[in-house]
Write a protein that binds this DNA or RNA. Structure first.
Length: 879
RNA sequence: GGGGAUUUAGCUCAGUUGGCUAGAGCGUACGAUUCACAUUCGUAAGGUCACAGGUUCAAGCCCUGUAAUCCCCACCA
């Protein structure tokens, strides 16, 4: 294969992915149930396990990947590829989400556009229709995952509605039912009248809004005039239309204004009912009039007040948002219509005493923005007490390591305040709740509800008793909580080396909704935490640090960037400059610099291939023949160590930074430049292989493309072994560091002179310096000075500002004189550094208490600076 | 009300248990160019590490307080 002369990722990325897939390299090498004969002989058992497992947070099967998915895949795939190179049997399990509510909303919108409504079809029919709808859309998302380079085991893709998922969910539910953790409760739920479904607390969005606080007079049923006080109580409310559901008025027991009214009765306006005045801490004397009407069926707080005082619940708003159980006049009105009418009528009766505008937060449906109506409904609830308690115990036992660390505490704090979990959703697109309600009335001994897996049936019969299925489906998070269990095919019977997962990587925003539930479910089902570590990434913001949103028009599509710059560039760009848990800005620039690195690597490889072609492919082990060669071995070793350390700590950005610097600033700029003179083919080969493998986790395509292009490499880079340490001579390596210092200083001095002399290159002279003498050609090439000669006789020209080397640039007197100011400035600068070092040494406490090596370093530095100043000063005198 | 963060160069961010002159990318300025790479090479400018105290031989880092910005949870009749 011949290298194309320019780096064109679009030419090879899809072919390479296809080749990997065809070769089956994404599959784990050890099966779930290990047998004796499938060890691959290269176990890297640093943590005791030959296996590495990670699951993909399933993207919506019916959507496209967004930038957050891009980050997720970049991070997870880098981990996967890294541990694969480290010799682990790596299992990266892909997924697709039925995305219950999301997909349902899209589908229902489609249905409405065609003039239909969901109510024309029964549940099974709708389920089948959405299934087909999603099946049409599937594939897009999977193609995009491939374009991002996800090296996941496609045969094991788990769809959230797969049989095994449903089975597992039913098994857990049954266990919970038998354990008495599931109950049917009439509770207030967050209800969206538009979608006609309930939501978990976590799915509701609160927004601050302007509203009106009305003050309504409720007259006392028994007049208290004789006591000379009040004959009425004024309540504050933002929802006058709910007064039909009022069952009490609450005041605070400590509120002197109303104390004497507790236990009395008031007449509920516009009705023929009387309701009691009760004392409850919920009433805040500071807020409004200090008296609050209690409507347990339509307000969360009132519901609790009702529970405390055993009050009835009167539902006055129907599930589609119309008034029910109200006087004829208001019956069937929408809540807003009713509100207007009520206010008008109250006003006419002189009962409307005040109207204030206030700011308060209002709950909205996170999908359609409709105001959430607290609705009294019978739903299935999970009693979370035991689940949360167990989870907290294991978290406090540090069984899961969090990145960033602080999320552990945040999660524990959340679990401590967790309320019971409403798992019923009134959406057909989801896993049916396997509960059936008794309809045979005579069978009084039988329970009202029974568990049964046959949810494909609407009606079942057991022992002559008929039951009908609950129409509801599970909250998505109930099944998602099983993700690590179902993806790894964990079972009660067999040991599974892939469970718990090594790591769970997902967005920080899912800590509560998902991570918490996976931990609770994992512990409940398997008795073990579902993963050893959690890595949470933050949100990807636009270049100005603003949240991306369609309405702002600042959404970046990852696929556009992949097309434009290549998948590797995207991956490098999105990981760079990003740390765990932080919401951070992202701009195309970082992708461009990623692309540039790929291009650099491409050209490095072309250069080395051309040297191999010219000099012949000398195989076998290398020997180092000069300082630069020893030095690059040392630098590459350091780089590998740092990358290993970074990966261990999930510091992806740091790993990339290290590689970037090593490849570009060290390998290309110094080593390869020196190799243009020396040409050590076996070393060039092994070092190139090493950096390619080390970069492979982050830039899989270009490293594989190069691997395939090089004449001497075999197999795929994806299945290579992580490189071993390179052998080198440390003293020689250190000498090269001095040479770099010399070259840099000469370059800098020449540049400083060029201001007046247009970068004219002057000859370099050395006095009694073996490092320079032994490397004349190299220094000449790197500095581009025309010649390097021994200094014969007295120092002349311009002294290069180096402490340990006697070097002069052969610059005419006149130019040196012009340089005088810069020289003076330089002496002053070094002098300032020297002063601060001296000050440190003058402090006896420093010499006493600081570690000895630091004190020594300071001494050495002082000596060096003093030498440098002395030399520069003598130079100044020469001028 | 409860919890969690952030504040370092023009911009976006690193800076691990305190330890040499606080780093990178982008941007800026100046210079280079017969080829591995202009998706390049070289050089440079640019910082009161939010502010005020404290601990320490030594603080960007630890402690206390202040300010600003942001996120999550609960509540707002």
């Amino acid at each position: 294969m011949k290298f194309s002369s320019s780096y064109e990722p679009g030419d090879f990325e899809s072919d390479i992915y296809a080749a990997w897939e065809a070769a089956g390299v994404f599959k784990p090498t050890i099966s779930i149930f290990p047998t004796d004969d499938n060890s691959d002989g290269h176990d890297d058992r640093e943590d005791g396990s030959p296996c590495y497992s990670i699951v993909m947070p399933p993207p919506n099967a019916n959507g496209n990947l967004h930038i957050g998915h891009g980050l997720t895949i970049a991070l997870e795939d880098s981990l996967t590829r890294y541990y694969r190179l480290r010799g682990k049997s790596t299992w990266y399990i892909p997924g697709a989400d039925h995305a219950g509510f999301e997909t349902w909303v899209v589908y229902e919108r489609n249905l409405e556009a065609k003039g239909h409504t969901r109510f024309e079809f029964d549940r099974n029919e709708l389920y089948a229709r959405v299934w087909d709808f999603v099946a049409e859309q599937r594939g897009n998302m999977e193609l995009q995952l491939r374009a991002l380079g996800a090296s996941c085991s496609w045969d094991d893709l788990t769809f959230t509605l797969d049989e095994n998922v449903i089975d597992r969910v039913y098994t857990t539910f049954e266990k919970m039912w038998n354990d008495g953790m599931i109950y049917r409760g009439e509770k207030l739920v967050n209800y969206c009248p538009k979608h006609q479904t309930a939501f978990a607390d976590i799915e509701v969005e609160h927004q601050d809004e302007k509203g009106t606080l009305w003050e309504i007079e409720y007259r006392l049923a028994e007049a208290l005039r004789e006591e000379g006080i009040l004959d009425a109580i004024v309540v504050s409310t933002t929802r006058p239309e709910t007064l039909f559901g009022d069952v009490a008025v609450a005041v605070n027991a400590t509120d002197e204004r109303y104390k004497h009214l507790i236990g009395k009765t008031v007449h509920l306006p516009l009705t023929d009912r009387d309701i009691p005045i009760i004392a409850d801490e919920h009433a805040d004397p500071e807020y409004g009039t200090g008296a609050v009407k209690i409507t347990p069926a339509h307000d969360f707080d009132d519901f609790e007040v009702g529970e405390r005082h055993n009050l009835p619940r009167i539902q006055v708003i129907s599930e589609d948002g119309h008034m029910i159980n109200v006087p004829e006049k208001y019956l069937g009105l929408t809540t807003m219509e009713c509100r207007k009418q009520v206010l008008k009528d109250l006003k006419e009766q002189g009962l409307l005493k005040g109207e204030k505008s206030i700011n308060h937060s209002v709950a909205h449906c996170y999908k359609c923005g409709t105001v959430i109506e607290p609705m009294l409904k019978e739903q299935w609830f999970v009693d979370v007490e035991k689940l949360a308690k167990t989870a907290i115990e294991h978290l406090e036992n540090n069984e899961i390591k969090f990145h960033p660390e602080n999320k552990q505490k945040v999660l524990i704090n959340y679990l401590k305040n967790l309320k019971d979990w409403n798992i019923s959703r009134q959406i057909p697109w989801g896993i049916a709740i396997p509960m059936f309600k008794k309809v045979t009335e005579e069978a009084t001994d039988e329970p009202d509800w029974i568990f049964d897996r046959r949810t494909n049936l609407k009606e079942i019969e057991k022992a002559g008793v008929k039951y009908v299925r609950d129409e509801d489906t599970f909250d998505t998070w109930f099944s998602s909580g099983h993700w690590p269990i179902v993806c790894t095919n964990w079972t009660e019977e067999n040991y599974n080396p892939y469970y718990p997962l090594n790591v769970m990587e997902t967005g920080a925003d899912l800590l509560f909704a998902w991570v918490a539930r996976m931990i609770m479910m994992g512990l409940y089902v398997t008795g073990e935490v579902p993963f050893r570590e959690v890595y949470l990434h933050g949100m990807v913001l636009d270049a100005h640090g603003k949240k991306m949103s369609k309405s702002k028009g600042n959404v970046i599509n990852p696929m556009d960037l992949v097309t434009k710059y290549g998948s590797d560039a995207f991956r490098l760009g999105i990981i760079r400059g990003r740390s765990a848990g932080m919401n951070q800005a992202f701009s195309e620039n970082s992708v461009i610099s990623g692309r540039n690195l790929c291009n650099k690597l491409w050209n490095i490889s072309r250069l080395i291939q051309s040297i191999v072609d010219e000099d012949g492919d000398i195989s076998g082990s290398y020997t180092t023949n000069n300082m630069g060669e020893d030095w690059i071995c040392r630098e590459i070793n350091d780089c590998l160590k740092q990358v290993e350390q970074s990966m261990k700590n999930y510091r992806f950005s740091e790993a990339i930074e290290t590689l970037y610097q090593t490849i570009w600033d060290k390998y290309a700029d110094w080593f390869l430049e020196s190799q243009k003179i020396f040409r050590n083919v076996p070393l060039l080969k092994v070092t190139l292989e090493t950096i390619l493998i080390a970069l492979h986790p982050f830039a899989p395509f270009v490293t594989e493309a190069i691997w395939q292009n090089l004449s001497w490499t075999e197999g795929f880079i994806i299945t290579q072994k992580w490189p071993r340490e390179l052998k080198y001579d440390p003293i020689s390596a250190e000498n090269f560091e001095s040479l770099i210092g010399i070259v840099s200083e000469v370059r800098g001095t020449l540049q400083a002179l060029s201001g007046t002399n247009n970068a004219k290159k002057y000859a370099l002279m050395y006095d009694n310096d073996s490092l320079v003498e032994d490397n004349l050609l190299l220094i000449r090439t790197l500095t581009k000075v025309p010649s390097i000669n021994p200094l014969n006789g007295a120092p002349r020209g311009l002294r290069v500002a180096l402490a340990n080397h006697e070097l002069y640039l052969d610059v005419p007197e006149k130019v040196v004189a012009e340089y005088r100011d810069s020289l003076t400035e330089k002496i002053l600068a070094v002098g300032r550094e020297l002063d601060s070092l001296n000050a440190r040494m003058m402090n006896p406490n420093y010499v006493d208490k600081a570690p000895a090596h630091l004190v020594k370093e300071t001494r050495d530095a002082i000596k060096e600076k003093e030498g440098l100043i002395a030399r520069l000063k003598s130079q100044l005198e020469l001028i």
